[in-house]
Design a protein around this nucleic acid. Sequence first.
RNA 1: GCGGGUGUAGCUUAGUGGUAAAGCUCCAGCCUUCCAAGCUGGCUAUGAGGGUUCGAUUCCCUUCACCCGCUCCA
Length: 511
Amino acid sequence: MSKPETSLMDRLTALCKRRGFIFQASEIYGGLNGFWDFGPLGVQLKNNLRDAWWHDMVDCPPLGPDGKPLSIVGIDTSIIQHPKTWIASGHVAGFADLMVDCRESKKRYRADHIKVYTVGYSTPKGVGAWSLGVLEGDDAELQVLKRAKKLVQKQGGGDVRIDSSKPDTLTDIWERHEDIYGPDAENPGTLTEPRAFNLMFHSYSGVFQNEDSKVYLRPETAQGIFLQYKNVLDSTRVKPPFGIAQVGKSFRNEVTPRNFIFRSREFEQMEMEFFCAPEDGMMWYEFWVGERLRWWEAQGVSKDNLFRHVIADADLSHYSKGTSDIEYRYPFTAPGFGELEGVAYRTDYDLKQHQEHSKTNLEYIDQENNRRYVPHVVEPASGLTRGVLVLLCEAYQYDESRASPEWLKLKPSLAPIKVGIFPLMNKDGMPEVAEKLYMDLRRTYTCQYDAKQSIGKRYARMDEAGTPFCITIDGDTLTNQTVTIRNRDTAQQEKVALDKVRAYLAERLSA
RNA sequence: GCGGGUGUAGCUUAGUGGUAAAGCUCCAGCCUUCCAAGCUGGCUAUGAGGGUUCGAUUCCCUUCACCCGCUCCA
């Protein structure tokens, strides 16, 4: 396997465009940062991955530790929910803060965390005052003096003293920004204007656009599940432990969309919230981490490229008692890993927040044990968009010895096209037989009929699409009723009787 | 958001202050008995906007997108 000059991601991106997996959104207008469209093959692949997840999560969930199937139901909630949802979840408050960037140190600060001290100095060259910005903290004054002394040294020595009895907050005295030193800057005036960095998209519901009608596009699908948890409980006869699963679009105003579809501003999530008794939280957390790792392997992702990243206690969100990221070795993170799915033990934080903000009791009444509690939640939240990227990265093969050096080794059940059907030649009755076979197989499998150009080109096209099997109707079909089935992975061909084709495919294409 | 880089056809590349070139892909037809074969023909490009100029793909400015590093990733 020789390696071409261009990077793997560049080649994969080019293949995705060439074959219709993924296009840049609004390409004819120059593109739009952070948005991508799925083409005909891409949407098939994405739907196949989504359906596999739904099947293994909702229709046929894994067995629990007791050997009995888990109880998980589906839901599909609105992208736009009551604005209070995001106040309760913490998404509004956490991102309302104004931020400033420092052009010199390249650091970003919360504007209200920068305290500005006025420091008078007297040196042989003269007297004056500096406005020194420093991050608020116990030793802020100490830091200010230290930096002032440094500045004085540069001017040949002298005295400094803090003039301000109380420091100003940067946001209050922003008009003086040209004189202000950033916390890590050696020159004044390097801070950018304070800006809000809310990661949520917003819009207005109704014709009047004002603060009262402001709504948000969900930054995660999870909250919709929490909001309907009680309705599901009351209408479905489920009881803890049970799960609610959802697949859908989410939106985040990412600061830096990057790496193809890895970090985009509109993306799709597959999330499941698993509700359980408080004392069982950690057990289910471990259960789901193992289960989800196993699942990704079952989709054809090699074990070596998957990694469980246990979030250190110090880095955990305030509401989480344990979080593990399931990471994948993407070409752009290699030899390191990047997130694919997060499994978080969120405790009862979300339900309690919504209980408080909505003033609705969200307790579960456990009549068997005569107690009531707000369930704890374990959340396996995975990126469907990222999943597609992982499948593509994992499937991409480069082999100079093949007629089509680039090909996709997708798991057959996930491949966008399952079977290519070709008449070897466009005459002698072959197209008629091929079309008949196509009309039969397409009822069961996603098939593509192709009679154009040489047989080699047709195989090559199917290789790039990741189609696992190609069936060719040849001269023998007309005399012996056999077809040639060509295997994508081995490029080997075998003769199969026409009436055995369905059985052949069924055996190899079942999940 | 900061810094650096890159933008010519679907892809890979050429070229020029004066009609934008080629190979592969793709499409049509012919041919063709299994891996991008051959023949003929065809479609398609200077990211966008502005400026300088008689004339800009080329020079200048702005903007957009993509790539790399930083930052961010609740």
